[in-house]
Design a binder for these strands. Structure first.
Lengths: 214, 214
DNA sequence: TACCGATATATCGCTTCGATACATCGGTAA
DNA sequence: TTACCGATGTATCGAAGCGATATATCGGTA
């Protein structure tokens, strides 16, 4: 779950933990937000698995400086001093910038393509949709359709639960349920639009979706 | 979190674990669903704390049989055999029915009234709203208003994050964000209606809230 | 000079989750 | 009749996530 998110962001550019967390909450929304207590252990797991590796620290993530030479040597210390003297405008502790490896790329594809619990788990679905552009069109369509089927079933169950309930429920619970069901209905309509768009694009591919992002 | 939900349901009637899980997913929605791996340890914690206690097993939770005599004696075994002979229609392993104690009632009130993380955590808010009828009117209004303020801030941050982003984002991520923001807007409108209703009821209490909806 | 707040990495304890094991009954079909 | 399946039910395990907290470094400011 978290691994997929990290790898997906590192695929686009090298990042350090703190920035990674910011992007996660921005990209995936405030729901499915991640704490440092999850993020740093996850980064360590990924590093131990060889999926990511630490590159040299640099303060401008948009123009990453590729790592030359070994880590932690006197040369690195020198560059660090030079960097601080050159651009002293950044405050705080030194960063640990991570980049994705070939192994990580493979792992990302596997995690993204895994069908298990991508329709029933809300966060897992949102995450996969956010990286859906890395998925082949058929898999994309399958993801959307499985999600739609799951939401339809969820809605049916929720309505059945209300009908089968003999005791009356109070105003607050009822309002909560009705609001939830309306949200699910809107989710389904939204998925319908996405599925429709997907089918149209599949009929006439390579016009918008796959435009090179530089 | 989970403790509050368990106590809230046990306040209404005595229940066993399996049924408790069903009610949780029904009442709180499929989100904030609970696994057995959380539920049973939570029940054990509550029992150890003296907030709930196991009562004698019975198969009809709507007309609970009060516990007489000690647990696990030969008399209990006899009654168990008699029960099975009398109403053998229920399948499955023997149940462990829990009831709330006075200490549990107090704990429930404390947990429900706790303001910390009831506005920023979605599940915590939903849970508290589901039991809002046990809250004094001012606390109820405060809960709704704090939640509204939080959602407004969340929406503002999400929009700011989109504006401040220099690289354009792909169709799927954009659709995900827009859909999420629309959902937040609707949540705010929904809260506005709840707040409005709350103020009306406070001006003229006890006319609609407590009327049987039958 | 001393403190505050932002940036940044890291860990601890606790809670939660998903998977699994185990147990008991009714129903069904070989 | 017996053998299996599925629903009901309690329980635990390992992994992962969370909130709180510790630690460190810098710029700004009182």
């Amino acid at each position: 779950m978290l691994e997929l998110a990290i790898l997906g962001l590192l695929k686009e550019q090298e990042l350090h933990g703190y920035e990674l967390k910011k992007r996660l909450t921005e990209t995936l929304g405030p729901l499915s937000s991640v704490s440092f207590g999850s993020l740093y252990p996850a980064l360590n797991r990924l590093e131990a698995a060889g999926a990511v590796k630490a590159v040299e620290a640099n303060e401008d993530p948009t123009t990453p400086i590729p790592m030359t030479g070994s880590l932690g040597g006197e040369a690195a210390a020198f560059r660090e001093r030079a960097r601080r003297a050159e651009r002293p405008q950044r405050a705080g502790r030194s960063r640990k910038v991570y980049g994705i490896t070939d192994k990580g790329q493979k792992l990302f594809d596997e995690l993204l393509a895994a069908e298990s619990s991508s329709a029933d788990d809300d966060r897992a679905f949102n995450l996969r949709l956010a990286f859906a552009r890395h998925l082949p069109p058929e898999a994309r369509l399958g993801l959307l359709e499985r999600r739609r089927a799951h939401l339809v079933e969820r809605l049916a169950k929720a309505r059945a639960a209300i009908r089968n309930r003999r005791e009356r429920l109070d105003d607050y619970s009822r309002s909560l349920m009705e609001h939830g069901n309306e949200a699910t209905e809107r989710d389904i309509s939204w998925l319908d639009r996405l599925i429709e768009r997907e089918r149209t694009n599949r009929a006439a591919p390579d016009t918008t979706t796959e435009a090179p992002s530089a």
